[in-house]
Design a protein around this nucleic acid. Structure first.
Lengths: 231, 231, 231, 231
DNA sequence: TATGAATGAGATTTCATTCAT
DNA sequence: CATGAATGAAATCTCATTCAT
């Protein structure tokens, strides 16, 4: 087995769960009450588990390593999660839910559809491609078949909503005359395909041939909206 | 862990390695000489290992199951492969090489570029999406980061060549006036992105929302070549 | 292979590590705190491993048997030792160190050199020949070539020191006129050779022809110091 | 396990079984008839097995390696020996018998007892210490307890005879007035002890502190016979 | 007679899970 | 609540032995 890279492969070292004091690492100043401490520990476990699962996949991840990285004892993990499997399943939920929550409170749709999509793609580039969150996508692709509940959840919460949102945007674009090909609304996957490819490419082939995701997405949007006059 | 489905999840039950009598299953009539028998066993192991790796991933696959499925004793595997890891690495090579070989002996480019690509895409649909070979792509995406040599090999043998071939086709399309957007040649990934997405979609979400890959690819090609007059 | 004699061949059943309550067997009353219990288990493993290694040699010893004999689970061994090999290497150190420690705190040299050596030889007879410690010497002879680190350690800690001590005694004997042959100081091995032979003889040939080691050593000392007038 | 030294540790590379065309290596010109060929193979197996057993001990020796070294197939070994165990037992006999045979046809006792013993010791030095045959002695010491039949055989054929021969020599020396200490005849082991120590020393400690066995034996004989006037 | 591919019991080692402290 | 030593089932890998060729 390729020896364990103690550090995750991802260039981004920012925690996958970002926000609030509860997400702080284990060496933070001791919080006031019991409940807070427990929440901190739980957050540390989630964070650590995510890193390990991303770096090694479900089966090859050791609870020992998660515990070490989270700065807790092995037994502590079992106070928060039933077992390794359900930990993995819960984890995906825990990590994805806030992301979805943020997406559903989108900025108000202003400007052209292309601008909307470009803004969205820009965020996606910044926050997903080449980050831990991108690795999470790859993790779900990798483990999905063995964790139908994970695949189900991901489809329900992320994919189906994303597809619906894209379809709405496309239809808006068609209605406004920005997009000429009506059939595109039937396959919103086409709109996001290059972005997904970019995510995977970064994980696997970045060191062979770096990919300028931003520029690729621009070319792709030109294909859909027509090339821009001015830049 | 989702209890082991002895049968692979893949809908296609055709062997991933297709050709010749040597690839026959273990219940074939006994062949003449020892060398042939050995080759048969080896092929059975490769076939069985591929199924198991696809169904469970590298770490969760048991050599015991591979042996059982191949109809050989556990020790026999070690006559053909050094250990589990190098078996996995060799396996990917063994399975991919003939595919690449077939691709490089492509039919002579005749007709329009769109026709060429459509023919190619048709083959791809038939032979990859929803088949074991598609699952293999997903497996490589899943295990690539832990098996850099596999990712390297796959990039070198499949991805870089595929990208080059696509770029050549795109440039031909541009030269002939079939494709208007010149920038596309810089990102051939855009051309194949929907096909890759289709592969992954089939593995993960087919039961939630079946995807008509053929139709999606047609829409995508319309985007690139312009919509067809007649259908 | 001569079927496994569950009990060691050695006549002495006293533990090779003698001292303190921590060395007690597994069926002792449970001690107070965890650290003590862990130390007890470790001691039990060391004791059991020594017995098994002596009885069967390194390669033929099964960790299963060590675990059974020590009254612990197989996995427990790996909490204390990295693997079988380093267990063996550590074991020799663990067992030898206290012996060496005791030897270096020798009784103050009093009386004639011959008396000194006879006292020493007497202790050696009682504590080494025909005991587990004697078997340990044979074990080191047996496994030394395959465990250079063990041979090194044994040479450094035991042999070179023993040789040096014997040389000092011989030179003292020469200076006092008790020993006439000056060259003996160049080969202190001659002084201890019969004792070593006795150790090996007991392990291998005792049942064919018992050897009165004590008497043999007396004859040998007569050779060196001259025969005693009275006895 | 200390990685297998493909070459034996012994400095002497001469075969342990020395003589006659039947002992020739595997790449000798093909002999005339079947029986000869079979004898050659058997000899090659014996030779190879001895090397491997000496280098690794009984349990750690692989039949595969013996076969490879002997230049025969693994199955061939089973045409000559029942199994690994009885191969080891027979081996010791096969190797030792001719040695004993040679010893029993000793040169006629001429000259002083000391000269006799010195001649004998000289041969011993040349033919045993630091050679494969010396390693064989160590092997018997190592494996004896697990192979009582080997220890028995060795005691019967070599040790008891050697002891008897030494005793006879000692008694002759006493009768002739060369040896003054009469008790020595009761412990002929004392006579050979330094030689045995030298054998073991070479195997284990030669690289830490080389031992001039010849000189040590001379000093020892001086102890027994008195120091020589002239040299 | 000789081969060496195949076997499968058995060895070492790992690691998710438990539970006394 | 938290711990981490202990467990033991299960995994990988080895190798003496067999047997069809």
């Amino acid at each position: 087995m390729p020896k364990k890279p103690t550090k995750a492969a991802s260039p981004s070292t920012a925690p996958i769960l970002a926000n609030g004091p509860a997400a702080a690492g284990p060496d933070t100043a001791p919080a006031s009450n019991r409940a807070t401490r427990a929440a901190e520990r739980r957050a540390a476990i989630v964070e650590a588990a995510m890193e390990e699962f991303i770096a090694r996949g479900f089966a090859a991840t050791r609870l020992d390593d998660i515990a070490k990285r989270a700065g807790v004892a092995k037994g502590t993990i079992y106070l928060h999660f039933k077992d390794k499997e359900s930990m993995f399943e819960e984890l995906v939920r825990i990590v994805i839910v806030p992301v979805v929550a943020r997406l559903t409170t989108l900025p108000p749709p202003a400007g052209s559809v292309r601008d909307l999509i470009e803004t969205f793609a820009g965020n996606f580039l910044k926050e997903v491609i080449g980050t831990r969150r991108g690795d999470l996508v790859r993790l779900i692709v990798a483990e999905g078949p063995r964790f139908p509940s994970v695949a189900d959840f991901y489809y329900r919460e992320v994919v189906s909503r994303g597809i619906a949102a894209m379809r709405a945007l496309i239809e808006l674009g068609i209605a406004r005359g920005e997009i000429r090909q009506k059939d595109l609304a039937r396959y919103p996957q086409i709109l996001v395909a290059p972005a997904m490819i970019a995510v995977i490419w970064q994980s696997l082939f970045a060191r062979h041939a770096p990919l300028d995701a931003q520029e690729m997405l621009r070319v792709h949007l030109d294909l859909i909206f027509g090339e821009r006059r001015t830049t």
